[in-house]
């Protein structure tokens, strides 16, 4: 494909603009907090110059704010990219990364970790949430039987598995009412647990998943055609769908394990990028990932500052923006279909 043809599909300037936006928002993210740290000192510190920061300021900057901003960026990029991929794979503009039961499975895993009688599983909450998300999606696939031969069957399996996991989760919550607060807090999404350790394992899993999705981005565009047309272009649609859903699920499960259930990012961001650029191509995935990162870093900044020094669950912020946007997309789709 010539450079001119590629430019007609996607313009790299858009991706660059999104990256600059992310940089500015990330700088804002590490600049605000209950402890005032002069912006010039932050910049000097990052440039390796003498910043005159106290030990506490350095700790706040490098051990609290920076890992949190990076984790928000990782989770935002994972959810946004997964959402875009799910929308392509299922040919449904309202699909989100939690469609196949990942959220409910992760919720059940987290609830098991929180409500176990001796509390010794609490430290394994991310692992339980991750396993729950993966297991729920695998079960959805297993029940639907024919993978993507009948996408609606897979969707229904996902809904059924999700409902079942939610029912078990609710039962466990009722049996352990003392654990309601941590479960509720986790469900609303939080980045309070951000640390370099969480950032490291999140970056590995999300990085691998995003690389796979970026590699298959071109073939994903083939899924917007009929399967016969895709085959004629040398694309095996079912193979691409399976690879895409596995990678998107890995990214989603990691995001959920690191930060709880943060909704609407996977719907808002892909539609925002595609709507603003008037491009439906999956060449937009890098831009969607970067914009998702910027969106969640900004949402987290709101979560930390709106009620400061208290914290607002980040899921409330994303839902506050996302729910009206979701309705907007729904209405727009209806108008187009008329």
């Amino acid at each position: 494909m010539s450079g001119e043809e590629l430019r007609s599909i996607w313009r790299w300037q858009i991706t660059l603009f999104a990256a600059l936006l992310l940089l500015v928002i990330a700088l804002l993210g590490i600049s605000f907090g209950p402890i005032h740290i002069p912006f010039t000192s932050i910049l000097r510190s990052f440039l390796g110059m003498d910043s005159h920061l106290s030990e506490q300021d350095r700790s706040v900057l490098f051990d609290i704010r920076l890992p949190r901003v990076i984790l928000a960026a990782l989770v935002g990029s994972a959810l946004a990219t997964s959402g875009a991929v799910y929308q392509t794979v299922f040919r449904n503009p309202l699909a989100d990364p939690y469609l196949l039961g990942a959220a409910a499975g992760a919720g059940l895993g987290a609830t098991i970790a929180i409500t176990n009688s001796h509390g010794n599983l609490y430290g394994l909450l991310p692992a339980f949430a991750f396993s729950g998300a993966i297991l729920a999606v695998v079960v959805s696939f297993f029940i639907s039987g024919k993978f993507f031969a009948e996408p609606n069957s897979l969707l229904l399996s996902g809904i059924a598995v999700g409902s079942f996991a939610t029912a078990v989760q609710t039962y466990l919550q009722q049996r352990h009412s003392a654990s309601l607060r941590p479960v509720y807090s986790w469900i609303l999404g939080e980045l309070t647990a951000a640390s370099w350790q969480v950032v490291t394992w999140s970056a590995i899993y999300i990085g691998v998943a995003l690389i796979i999705l970026l590699i298959v981005a071109k073939q994903l565009d083939g899924l917007m055609l009929t399967d016969e047309e895709a085959y004629s272009l040398g694309i095996n649609p079912n193979k691409i769908r399976v690879i895409a859903v596995i990678a998107a699920t890995l990214a989603t499960a990691t995001a959920v394990a690191a930060s709880g259930l943060i909704g609407f990012v996977g719907i808002v961001v892909p539609h925002l990028v595609r709507g603003l650029t008037h491009r439906v191509t999956n060449r937009a995935l890098p831009t969607i990932a970067i914009t998702g990162a910027a969106f969640l870093v900004l949402a987290d900044l709101g979560a930390r500052t709106l009620l400061s020094p208290a914290e607002l669950p980040i899921g409330i912020i994303t839902a506050f923006v996302g729910a009206p946007f979701f309705l907007f997309v729904l209405r727009r789709k209806r108008l187009i279909n008329q």
Binding site: I64, G119, A310
Partner: peptide
């Protein structure tokens, strides 16, 4: 932040406040 009296504090704020005592009611959670 919370009329019920149970706000979620930021870690940074706790560092800034520098409490002389910390009471953990989540000891059972490790």
């Amino acid at each position: 932040a919370d009329d019920g009296g149970y706000p979620q504090l930021q870690s940074e704020y706790i560092l800034k406040s520098d409490p002389q005592f910390i009471f953990l009611s989540d000891g059972e959670f490790g």
